Computed example of a mutant assay.
Amino acid sequence: MFRYYDIGHAEVFIFDDFLIKQVREGAIVDQEETEEFKIILKEHFNEKNMAYISNRVFSYSVNPLVYKEAEKIPNLVAIAVIPSNEKTRASAKYESQFYDRPFGIFDNLSEAIEWVQKIIQRENSELSVENA
């Protein structure tokens, strides 16, 4: 079961521990978009570890400084990107330099989901040990 949002420039699919976002062709992801993202996160993942999966089906621009804002979200434990071509893969590699938490680039959605679930499970285990 998942929740679906159409937020104009993107579609967001919310699952238990992660979300998948598909930004529309030609959009620009910047600070304003990050604020919208935070609202969705607070509603669905308040104080619960989660991951973000970017399914890059279309071509769009990302201001890499949004990753510094994303680092301020304490329960966002990983970002996964699924590029649709080599140009998008190169952009994702560049963007990864701006994010100091786990950042993975994958060939398909299944690989990305498997990876983020491992990261979330590890983070939740570490949190359980700290709280024991």
Rank of each mutant, 00 (worst) to 15 (best):
E25H: 10
V116T: 12
V23S: 12
R3V: 08
V77M: 11
S84H: 15
Q97D: 07
Y67L: 11
G26Q: 03
Y60I: 06
M50V: 13
V81P: 04
S125R: 13
V77Y: 03
D107C: 05
N108R: 05
D17A: 02
L19G: 06
V62C: 02
V57N: 08
S54M: 07
E130M: 10
A27C: 06
E95A: 10
Y5E: 07
E71K: 05
K72P: 01
V116D: 00
D6S: 13
V66E: 01
L41M: 13
T34L: 13
N55W: 06
I73S: 04
A27I: 01
Q117R: 14
K93T: 11
E111N: 14
K42P: 01
E111T: 10
I14P: 12
I105T: 09
P83M: 09
E36H: 12
I20G: 10
Q22E: 15
E47W: 01
A90P: 00
I79E: 04
E123D: 06
S54W: 03
A80H: 06
F37R: 07
K118Q: 13
Y5R: 08
F45E: 08
E25T: 02
K118F: 01
N108V: 04
F2R: 13
E25Y: 06
A112V: 03
I120Q: 05
V12R: 13
V62A: 07
N85Y: 05
S59L: 04
E33D: 12
I28Q: 06
E33A: 12
N55F: 09
I120F: 03
A27N: 02
K87Q: 12
F98R: 02
S84F: 11
F13C: 04
K38R: 14
A27G: 09
A92N: 08
D16W: 01
Y99M: 05
P74K: 10
I14E: 10
S54E: 09
I113V: 15
R122A: 09
A132S: 13
D6T: 02
D16T: 12
H44P: 02
N108A: 06
N108D: 15
E69V: 01
